[in-house]
């Protein structure tokens, strides 16, 4: 049961960060269908996420950090979820998965977004980190 109200300073009600992903959650004064529309309609996406356009290869959004990101829609695992795989046009290998989950909460909607970097580099960071840490211990 969450009883958090909206009169907080930050838009985020819950926050969690681990080594592989970033998660944010917010309660919205809207029904689930309206939130889904805001996640799928290009005109609405342009008003809050960033300028959304479609070219020959698919969808591109320019987020507020000025980065053009190619957005590939992935079939969501369940209804009420929207799943993208996106990557900067300048670094097509640097993909991450963005999963939005919308659920009903009383007469409002809770939106949770999780952005996860592809697993390959995380494994590398952990392995390399362990290698370097052990070398530093030996050196010290």
């Amino acid at each position: 049961m969450s009883d958090t109200d909206t009169d907080t300073d930050t838009p985020t009600d819950t926050t969690s960060v681990d080594t592989t992903s970033v998660e944010r959650s917010v309660v919205l004064d809207a029904d689930v269908e309206t939130v889904i529309e805001a996640l799928t309609d290009p005109d609405l996406l342009s008003t809050w996420l960033g300028d959304w356009r479609t070219d020959d290869d698919g969808d591109v959004v320019r987020t507020d950090d000025g980065v053009d990101r190619r957005v590939e829609r992935v079939e969501a695992e369940f209804p009420g979820a929207v799943h993208w795989r996106w990557s900067p046009l300048s670094a097509p290998d640097a993909t991450s998965d963005v999963v939005f989950v919308v659920s009903r909460e009383m007469d409002r909607a809770r939106l949770t977004v999780t952005e996860t970097r592809s697993a390959s580099w995380v494994g590398c960071l952990l392995t390399l980190g362990a290698v370097l840490a052990s070398r530093h211990l030996v050196a010290a």
Binding site: T6, T10, P11, T12, T15, V17, V22, R24, V26, L28, D29, A30, T34, V35, A38, L44, T47, W48, L49, T63, D64, D65, S96, L111, V113, E115
Partner: peptide
Amino acid sequence: TGAAWDRRLGRLRDLLN
């Protein structure tokens, strides 16, 4: 990335609320 989603969800909330 966390800061970016805070900004984006803040705008979405302004839009819907």
